[in-house]
């Protein structure tokens, strides 16, 4: 089971991350989970093989301050989350404007559970079957 070490809010996030950097924690990654009504964003840090996880709750559609100024490694993952979940990160060092992984004509926010955003697998029989089942 995963342990969540700390809950953070939009205001305390950047300060907390900067403090962790100073304390010698290594940035591992970020994980976004769509919980239907809101997003959970986990910030995973590591020190001496121990995972230290922060959790941030974000209302949809989601605007979050970027931590890429404090921690450059977060830049790539934040751009990826922008693509896949449509969350906007403010103050990114390099902003690919939601076309980092996805081409301009690709489906938007493919990882969101928002009704109306369908996964476009046009000719796939499996996808059609699922639609019928629903």
């Amino acid at each position: 089971m995963m342990k969540i070490n700390e809950e953070v809010s939009l205001e305390t996030l950047v300060g907390k991350v900067a403090a962790l950097q100073v304390a010698g924690y290594r940035f591992v990654t970020m994980t976004t989970v769509d919980c239907d009504d809101y997003f959970d964003i986990y910030y995973h840090y590591d020190k001496d093989y121990e995972l230290y996880t922060l959790r941030l709750k974000v209302e949809k559609p989601g605007v979050v301050p970027s931590i890429s100024t404090a921690c450059f490694a977060a830049l790539i993952i934040e751009n990826e989350i922008q693509d896949l979940f449509g969350i906007t990160f403010t103050g990114l060092v390099v902003d690919y404007e939601k076309h980092f992984l996805l081409a301009p004509d690709a489906p938007e926010k493919p990882f969101c559970h928002v009704p109306g955003v369908k996964i476009t697998t046009v000719d796939s029989p499996a996808a059609k079957k699922e639609e019928v089942a629903e």
Partner: peptide
């Protein structure tokens, strides 16, 4: 990967 959203075929 045929069922993936980003795969055309």
């Amino acid at each position: 990967f045929a069922d993936c959203y980003n795969v055309v075929g």
